[in-house]
Amino acid sequence: METSNPTRRAVLGTAAALTAFSTAASRAARSEQPPASVSPPSQALIRVNGKQLTLELEPRTTLLDALREQTDLHGTKKGCDQGACGACTVHIDGKRVLSCLTLAVRCVGKEITTIEGLADGDTLHPMQAAFLAHDGMQCGYCTPGQIMSAVALVKEGHTQSDAEIAEWMSGNICRCGAYPNIVAAIREVVGPDGKRG
């Protein structure tokens, strides 16, 4: 947990450090601009993995930042922060979405599931077990997002062939190139006929 009430400077600092593709010039332009309006953080109740959490949210706080900075749920990862990598994939009301492009205050009244919500006590979700069995990761950074996407994919039923699995997993990038093993893990969970799940 970094800070529950970050200052504007702290937020900008974090954002600049984590924005992989920003130039020096754009960073300079960013810090020159005064805030257009200030909305004080307010408390909101958000339901994550079946538990109500009280979070301090500004309108601009993304669900990803709220999870990573205000809860101990650090499994959801920040890759690009721009919708392009899938590392931040979570389920909202059962659908896979990107938490980096979701405003946390818009999640009030919705059911959020993160990677921490998949296991049943000490028993891993079948997809988690299959990723372990098939070495579906190397560095592991993309893995929580891959598994959240894979669980949704099986539910959606886009698993008739390896090509279909690859297409419907294409929102999750893996810098380590673990793709064949990821497809093998999903294939194990759905079975050879591609229909289970």
């Binding site: 020096a24 754009s26 332009a29 899938g86 979405v97 492009l101 979701t102 996407s149 294409s170 929102g171």
Partner: peptide, 30 residues
């Protein structure tokens, strides 16, 4: 278009109004 996650979020109206992907437009350093 995009990815399954983006398609679960993106809407018809928002898609019609997506701004250009020109890299200069999206980087205020230019």
């Amino acid at each position: 278009s995009a990815s399954p996650q983006v398609r679960n979020m993106g809407t018809v109206g928002g898609n019609l109004l997506q701004r250009t992907r020109c890299g200069y437009f999206r980087d205020v350093g230019f």
